[in-house]
Design a protein around this nucleic acid. Sequence first.
DNA 1: CTTGAAAAAGCGTTAGC
DNA 2: GCTAACGCTTTTTCAAG
Lengths: 159, 159
Amino acid sequence: MTRSELDDVDRGILHVLQEDARNNSAGNIADEVGVAANTVRNRIERLEDEGILRGYHPDIDYEKAGFQLHVNFVSTVPASDTAEMAEKALDIHGVIRVVQRLSGHRNLAIEAVGKERDDIATIASRLEEIGCNIEDEWFIKEEQMHPFNHFGFTEMTES
Amino acid sequence: MTRSELDDVDRGILHVLQEDARNNSAGNIADEVGVAANTVRNRIERLEDEGILRGYHPDIDYEKAGFQLHVNFVSTVPASDTAEMAEKALDIHGVIRVVQRLSGHRNLAIEAVGKERDDIATIASRLEEIGCNIEDEWFIKEEQMHPFNHFGFTEMTES
DNA sequence: CTTGAAAAAGCGTTAGC
DNA sequence: GCTAACGCTTTTTCAAG
């Protein structure tokens, strides 16, 4: 299911999708990349099958959406259980992202949002309940994703 | 441009979009939420204008896409410059996300991907060049976003 | 916010290169 | 594997209530 390398068409498709994954149809992407629309559809299907394209999500400004508190917990969990703990953490209401780290310690970062301090406290309690040993916690001011991407037609070693 | 509260329709729309922002048309969402398709389009337009919906991005498995190295840098920058530094960091090839923290120290987290160790070293150099004082660095094993969201019809205090 | 129509664009399947 | 053309479906747009 994995592939050796993406070609220019694949990278071009990913590039356009990263700019706007919702409003760029196969036809649009085809024009940008220089292939037929059907080719784009086939490639996207393949990229999805291969697991390279896992899904499409909106970028939400949680603060403007009413969740003024945006916090990140760093915890330590048994190294063999990071995947399982990540799943459990994601089930907690308010948790929006989990990052598993390649370290024995402080190996699970959990990002969550809430409307009041109580929400954050509740989330922290639930994390402890499922076995997350919270070691650090900080508030997030703002989070920015890359508007462009690294799948353009230039190589990694350039600019 | 900001609003007091989202209503059930807004939350329902955000909920459906979080599951799949690309393959859910206004019609689909309308069926799920129980309003007309045009209403969904109008609401989405409003949410975009208000800045709550900032964009739509694919969830890419960077490892499978050929970027085996996934790393997070934590750096300290002058508190007044976090926004500016965040922008500069995002311009660096390989950087995929920047998180500004609400703290005076270790206030900028930069996530990046690369194919080889040299890529990571290059990114680190560039970060230092623009004024990021790198204090910590770790490798990411896996990153999971929330497949569902917190805009369902239940309240934050429930479940 | 909804309805209802026309217009447009998307999609999937073919066949052919 | 890519392209092009077909017909079909869906979506969008724009009116009006």
